[in-house]
């Protein structure tokens, strides 16, 4: 009985943090910014969300706190990369280290504390999971069918041209970074409030990195991100079931499986896309490049 309704719910739940963070990073990268600080923003959201939920007794306040904290951390990245023109890769890595260190320090008082109970939602699926699922078509629509999405893609594709046409490259990017930070923070808060139900240091365990990988292999498409997140969630649940069933495979290998499987499958998919020479699925033209308006 591995494929039943409960298993599917577990899959949805396991996929949600990565789905949220990867959707946020999709928006950021479509605007031409490479923020490698997803892991740092997620762990910050996990702690801040847990603290807010604990203080108010309300998981909803916790999720809000996580999103705000993630956005706040991402604005540090925005200030450094968009105004002081620092290198995005180095700044993003620093943001991850900063988030991990910061939460390790401020998280001490929350160790061993229990989270407030999560209310259920329709079909026994909680509201944050629904939100993650709803965001997939919404983000796709906004990116591909609205003026705002077109401008965002234009900025990510060729920032010099967008500037020449009079669009505010920096403003668009700062907004995208903040949204990406909020979604990563929300994803982190989901881990501490809804999945693990407590705070432990480094509890996001590389989910931010998986989210980054999913964005690339999904070809910067929200639907691809959903597939990648479900794949990760599915293998996570599967390996937990296998562990519970006492299969004679070392636990370490099983724990590794979701990461390994996700990356392997996505590599195969993106390699095929490359051979098919499809026009979509290519990286935004200005991704990771510093924009400085000249003359």
């Amino acid at each position: 009985m591995i494929l039943d309704w409960t298993t599917f719910l577990l899959l949805l739940s396991a996929a949600t943090p990565i789905l949220l963070a990867a959707l946020g990073e999709t928006i950021v990268e479509r605007a031409g910014v490479l923020n490698l600080g997803v892991e740092g923003m997620m762990i910050t959201g996990a702690l801040a969300g847990f603290a807010a939920a604990h203080a108010t007794g309300s998981p909803a306040a916790g999720f809000l706190g996580g999103a705000v904290a993630g956005a706040a951390l991402s604005l540090i990245f925005a200030a450094l990369t968009q105004y002081l023109l620092t290198n995005q890769v180095a700044t993003g890595l620093a943001l991850t280290l900063f988030g991990l260190g910061l939460t390790a320090m401020f998280g001490k008082p929350y160790e061993g504390v229990k989270a407030p109970a999560m209310p259920g939602g329709p079909l026994g699926i909680n509201w944050v999971v629904w939100l993650g699922l709803a965001l997939v078509p919404v983000i796709w629509l906004v990116l591909n069918r609205t003026r705002a999405g077109l401008v965002l893609r234009a900025v990510g594709e060729n920032h010099d041209a967008a500037h020449a046409l009079g669009y505010k490259v920096r403003g668009v990017r700062v907004a995208a970074i903040a949204i990406g930070g909020a979604l990563a923070g929300l994803g982190g808060a989901y881990v501490s409030i809804a999945t693990v139900l407590q705070w432990t240091e480094g509890m996001t365990a590389g989910a931010g990195w998986i989210a980054l990988a999913i964005v690339v292999f999904a070809g910067w498409s929200p639907w691809g991100v959903l597939a990648g997140a479900w794949l990760f969630g599915g293998v996570t649940v599967l390996q937990l079931r296998l562990q519970a069933a006492g299969v004679a495979v070392p636990v370490q290998l099983l724990s590794m499986a979701p990461y390994l499987a996700t990356i392997l499958v996505l590599v195969v998919i993106s390699a095929r896309q490359k051979y098919a020479r499809s026009a979509s699925g290519a990286a935004p033209g200005s991704l990771g490049r510093t924009f400085h308006a000249t003359r």
């Binding site: 893609r153 060729n158 010099d160 020449a164 290519a282």
Partner: peptide
């Protein structure tokens, strides 16, 4: 009409025109 950099390769003709 610019000499360089004012079109977006990954976007369609209509999208490029809409941006202007």
């Amino acid at each position: 009409v610019f000499q360089h950099f004012s079109l977006f390769d990954a976007l369609s003709v209509a999208e490029n025109i809409a941006l202007g």
